[in-house]
């Protein structure tokens, strides 16, 4: 490939591609404002380090989390990044109905995340088990295992809604 082609490819990723900054989700702001144990959970800085935990998802939610990293949503411009270890995380982003086979791993990941920490339950399954509720192999929503600060609805929630939910976490008024 010639250098011309490479330049073209690099140029194709320049800013006009990027989605404008969305407003934080109103629903998320309300849920965060109503959280009772806010003081106990501590406060967040200007950035979010997120550890993702799939606790039983169909993998649809994961696809849309992945999309946040593409050049269109470019989530790092908001100071939001995904980290590889719970020890470096201040937010756990949990997907799926929690399966019985994943309960212990979720609990351990939560325990390994230092305070202050926030838990975001992503997707309809993470709220209440979604269409898997009632299965003997499933516990249900994430809040049945660890305390949840914020729910983001959808099956899966589109990236823009995930972003708006996470931006609500970063709003000074909500901490």
């Amino acid at each position: 490939m010639g250098p011309g082609m490479l330049r073209l490819l690099l140029k194709g990723l320049a800013p006009p591609l990027t989605e404008p900054v969305p407003a934080p989700s109103e629903v998320a702001l309300r849920e965060l404002a109503g959280a009772v144990d806010r003081a106990a959970r501590g406060t967040l800085g200007r950035s979010l380090s997120i550890r993702h935990v799939d606790a039983g998802s169909c993998n649809g939610c994961e696809l849309e989390i992945h999309a946040l990293n593409n050049a269109i949503y470019n989530i790092e411009r908001f100071g939001i990044r995904f980290v590889a270890s719970p020890r470096h995380a201040d937010v756990l982003l949990v997907t799926g109905p929690v399966t019985k086979n994943m309960r212990e791993a979720l609990q351990r990941t939560y325990d390994a995340t230092p305070h202050p920490k926030w838990v975001v339950a992503l997707g309809d399954c993470a709220r209440d088990g979604g269409c898997f509720a009632g299965s003997p192999a499933v516990i249900g929503g994430v809040s049945k295992v660890v305390p949840v600060d914020l729910h983001i609805a959808g099956c899966p929630p589109p990236p823009i809604e995930i972003l708006r939910g996470l931006l609500a976490l970063l709003q000074p008024g909500t901490r």
């Binding site: 039983g56 799926g96 109905p97 399966t99 086979n101 791993a105 898997f132 299965s135 003997p136 499933v138």
Partner: peptide, 11 residues
């Protein structure tokens, strides 16, 4: 494997 077993066939 089996961690994300949701019991779909049972449902």
């Amino acid at each position: 494997l089996g961690y994300v077993h949701k019991g779909i066939e049972g449902l």
